[in-house]
Structures are given as structure tokens and as C-alpha cells.
Design a protein around this nucleic acid. Structure first.
Lengths: 265, 265
DNA sequence: CGCAAAAATCCCTTAAAATGAGATTTTGGA
DNA sequence: TCCAAAATCTCATTTTAAGGGATTTTTGCG
């Protein structure tokens, strides 16, 4: 069984958590075992989730995620200021370099690509929209961690110490911290082949009026296409684009257009 | 207030329902009024939904749908047999005709585009992935209704009587029913300009081992590109593609590959 | 920098609602 | 048509969610 307990709200939503890339389909029996719910309870949950459209089941086959998910994703694409305002910058960067650009949101302990665009003839990235990436390695993760408020950085370094070390960012926590300070100073992070071999990532954080980054803008490009100088050039562009995007986001905030309410009663 | 009542599971999930194309952002106050929940209750719900990633809120701005939605959509794209097996047919139809093809799932009282592909130079359809379409008009809706078990057809005709009449399908319930029988016999439905002016839709139902259709495969094409003969040709293709897709789906069902369970403990 | 206003959370009792063992009905496949 | 498996129902029991009001935390502003 995965989770301890929680209130019934959390327990219903916990059902959604077991659907992963490794396991996209579950039978009620399997869910009972995995989640430790009783039969009637599980069926009640499933019924509710199914009615909400979050799950769907073909008769007597397993359950999978449902159509409401597709609908919500569509709505999200229309509502997320990050995506809406980021598009322009993605386009600009892909125009300027032969690369794949990613707009990646930070949430919980993951980072998640919410939009991407490519101009490389042979795209190398394996992270399309919606595929979560682990924190801990790669330019994106580092571009976010480096810009966290001081007291949040150290715990994160410790949590991902293995990864950060193996990536050559330093041997001790202090050394790594120093390197992250350098990232912070430069305004962008660079990683060579940390996520995908032969691919260089250059990422800069995106802020939303607050002090902590909420997302990262990243250019990934084939290593053979770049040298130190070009990486610097890309870094500058990415940093500026990210800064500009951040500014747009917080400007939007300051003048919150009160959208009209549409009722149907 | 939108909904009457329901158990707390339904009430939490009802929060997700208020996010629509007309209203993509809600403040807690507005949600309290709209849903009729008390303050602590609403905040509890919001907290839970936010922790699950289904909602997100930028400090003191409104709430919007959250990143988990993007992740689930990605998973869904990988797991939905309809999408996976349908892709081939969409590709084939778009290759053969200069058109937009849609794969549309039926759920509740809506139909929802889950995949689409276009080969027309100037795509006219305004229903991208995730945008729900109303039942009641259009070839897609009709291709589904016509193939429902007898006892489900009449209530649906009555429910959408206005629409069906205005579309010229007949004046009385009987007349409309006759027309639907004809659709059933032909194996596909045709609609001219019912959804988008100047666009002809040709749709056939997709089944999943059961008697009721679960989806529809549709070709939309500029009216000026087709005459009766071509429409018939398209109809035949669409019907055959849909039948083939249905067969693939139920074959898959009959030999349910037991996917391995991956645990991490 | 610190204050006032608003937002979000907490507390705690009551009332309501979720739970689950087992019986029962429905479903879908042969 | 019938049978086994799947899904739902029943109902006594206990857990737990609800919400008025107080409290703490955050935010905007002087």
C-alpha cells in the first residue's frame, strides 16, 4: 500500500496518483490491494471519479484516466499565463537557435514541461509536454534551486547530494553551494549531457512577483553545435527572455483584469 | 449556486466543474458564493486540490487549474487505446483527403475531441483537442445517437428536438427517428454547415466490444471541395476506418495483456 | 519598517456522513 | 439462455467532516 491515510478527500485523490507512466491501467482488485481500501469504498470512489470524468473504464477492463482530463488540459492551456506569455519567448528562441525550447513549471518535488517548441531538425529531448522530470540534475532544476531563498537551498542540496556530486558540481555541500551562487550570479544554469547525452541545456528561472522561481525557461541544443562562446550567448538570451517573461507575469498581477462572470443558472 | 448537494467527494470534485472556458480563474470568495460552501470548508477543499496539483494559485490571485492536469493529460495520451489505435486511421484519412480529421469521445452529455489531424491548407474547424462540443448538432453527435440501443434513442431525440429540427432532420420525433435509422443503415452521418458554416462533416461511430458507441471518427472538409459522390466516398472510408478501429479495440479487449506491475516501495 | 486590512487557518462541538462485512443485484461472456 | 464475476446495496457503527467564530498569517500601504 502506497499511502498511510488522510481524510477521505485525500483518499479519493490518491487514486489518481497510482496512474503513472509505468502503470496506466488498473483493475479494481489491484487498486484495492495497492491502496488498501475496502471494496465498497473503492467502488464508491471509482464511481465518483468516473462520474467526474477523471477516470474511465471500458466494461470489465481496467480503469484509466478519463476524458475530463483532456478537457481540463485544454482549459489550462488557455488560462495559464505562463504558457500564454511564454509562447512568444519560446518562438523567439527557437527562431534564433536550432534547438528545442522548454517551458517548465516547478511543483512539489518535480518539474514539469508545460510547453515546448523545436527548430532542430532532429529533436533530441525526450521530455514533451506533461512528462515530469526529476529534480536533481539538469540545467532546469539547477536554475530553479539556485534562485531559491537561502534557507531552502541547503536542504535541497542535501536531498539531491548524490546527483549533484555525480554531475561534477562539487564534492561537499559548501562547494556545491558556491557553484550555485555562481549560477545565481550568471543568471542562468548550464548542463552538458546531464539529462540526455550529447545535449546541452541552458536554463533561467521565471518569477512571479514573488521571491521564489515558479518555472524555468530552457534551451536544449546538440552539444556539437555549440562552444563556450555560443553557450554564453544562449545564456544571455535565455536569461533576458526569462526576465522579460517574469516582468510580464508580475505586471499582469499588478493590474488584475476582473474577468466577467458568465452564469447560466 | 450551481449544484444541489452530494457527498463530500462530489463536492470537492464539483469545484473543478466551475472552471470553464468562460471562467478560467476564481477567487475563494467567488467560489464560496458560486458553490455555497462555508469558508473553512472551501479552504479545506482548495488546499486538498492544490496539494494534489489539480489546482494552483498564485499568491493572492485567483485559483486556476494546476500542473497535475498537464501530467495526467500526458499519461492519458499514452494510455488511451482509442488515441493510440486511432492515430493510424486519422493519418490515413488526412492523407487521402484534404481535410481535418477528428477523433471524438462521447462522455456524459458531451462529445470531446481527443485527437485531430489536418491536411487542409486552411483548417476551418474550431474544435482542437480538449474542446467539448455540445450533443445535438453535427455529424459526430448524430453518428453516435443513431447507433444507440433503441430505448436510448427516443429520449435523446426529444432532448435535442429543437436542434435536430432546425437542422432539417425532420419535423416530428418519428420523422427524425426514421432519418437516424437511415444513418444507421448507411453506417455514417453527414452534416453540412451545422457546426461551422461552409464545412461538411462525415462521421462514423466507434465501438468497443459493446453495443453502444464510445466515440466517433469524423472527417471535416470544405463544402466547396465535395459533391454528393465525394461525400459518399468519404463516408465509405470513414465507416471502414471506424469499423476497423472498433475491431482493433475489441480485439485488444479479448486478449487483455496483463501489464506488469512496477512497484517502488 | 511597521501597521491595518484581508486572507487563510485553527478550534471545537455537534450533527452528519463515510465505512465495511456481508447479502444482493447486475453484467457480460459462453 | 444461464452462470460466474463484477458492481452495488443494506444498515448498524463510528469516524469525521462541517462551520461559527476566534486566531494567526500574509499582504498592501503609508
Amino acid at each position: 500500500m502506497t499511502d498511510k491515510k488522510g481524510n477521505s478527500l485525500e483518499r479519493v485523490l490518491a487514486v489518481l496518483e497510482v496512474f503513472t507512466e509505468d502503470r496506466l491501467e488498473w483493475t479494481p482488485e489491484q487498486l484495492m490491494e495497492e491502496l488498501g481500501y475496502s471494496r465498497p469504498t473503492l467502488y464508491r470512489y471509482l464511481k465518483t471519479l468516473k462520474e467526474a470524468g477523471l477516470l474511465s473504464s471500458m466494461p470489465n477492463a481496467g480503469f484509466t484516466l478519463g476524458p475530463k482530463v483532456v478537457e481540463m488540459d485544454y482549459l489550462l492551456r488557455q488560462s495559464d499565463p505562463l504558457i500564454l506569455k511564454g509562447e512568444r519567448h519560446l518562438a523567439e528562441l527557437t527562431r534564433r537557435f536550432s534547438c528545442t525550447t522548454l517551458l517548465v513549471r516547478w511543483y512539489g518535488n518535480r518539474i514539469l514541461c508545460v510547453d515546448s517548441r523545436t527548430s532542430a531538425k532532429d529533436p533530441l529531448s525526450s521530455y514533451p509536454r506533461g512528462r515530469p522530470m526529476p529534480m536533481g540534475r539538469g540545467a532546469i532544476a539547477r536554475s530553479i534551486i539556485a534562485f531559491l531563498p537561502r534557507r531552502h537551498i541547503l536542504p535541497r542540496i542535501e536531498a539531491s547530494l548524490e546527483d549533484l556530486r555525480s554531475v561534477g558540481l562539487g564534492a561537499t555541500v559548501e562547494e556545491i553551494h558556491d557553484n550555485l551562487k555562481r549560477v545565481r550570479k550568471a543568471g542562468y544554469a548550464v548542463a552538458k549531457g546531464e539529462v540526455t547525452p550529447g545535449v546541452v541545456g541552458v536554463a533561467a528561472p521565471v518569477f512571479d512577483a514573488g521571491q521564489s522561481p515558479i518555472a524555468s525557461l530552457c534551451v536544449t541544443i546538440a552539444a556539437e553545435l555549440v562552444d563556450t562562446k555560443v553557450v554564453e550567448e544562449i545564456g544571455t538570451c535565455v536569461r533576458e527572455a526569462a526576465a522579460s517573461l517574469s516582468a510580464e507575469l508580475s505586471a499582469d498581477r499588478r493590474a488584475p483584469a476582473e474577468r466577467q462572470r458568465v452564469r447560466e443558472d
